[in-house]
């Protein structure tokens, strides 16, 4: 049985991705110099998620992998959302912390 091989990703693609990641890092540090209240955390998380997506799909070759790998990631993310979300249904509606 022959193994399926990925086509090599060009050096160029990786370097461009790296530059975008550095720019996004600059954006997070820049935004954090201004106080927008609670929105700051959400901006930081949005930028971090975009960076994570770039690392996952380009650096980690997820783009080239089969559907199985992508479904696996989705299952993991849904699991995370369930356990974080359910915890917060408790935390946000407590009167006093014990």
């Amino acid at each position: 049985m022959t193994e399926e091989k990925h086509e090599p990703v060009s050096y160029r693609t990786f370097i461009i991705t790296w530059i975008v990641l550095l720019v996004l890092t600059g954006v997070t540090v820049g935004v954090a110099q201004f106080d927008f209240g609670a929105i700051n955390v959400w901006i930081a998380l949005t930028v971090a998620s975009s960076k994570a997506a770039l690392v996952l799909f380009v650096f980690m070759h997820l783009r080239q992998e089969s559907v199985l790998f992508k479904v696996g990631l989705l299952v993991m993310l849904v699991t995370l959302i369930i356990f974080i979300g359910l915890t917060f249904t408790d935390i946000l509606y407590r009167e006093v912390l014990p």
């Binding site: 540090v29 930081a44 994570a52």
Partner: peptide
Amino acid sequence: LVWIFLFPLYYLII
């Protein structure tokens, strides 16, 4: 990936 989330959450909260 872990550091991408750790950095803004710990260093950049204002």
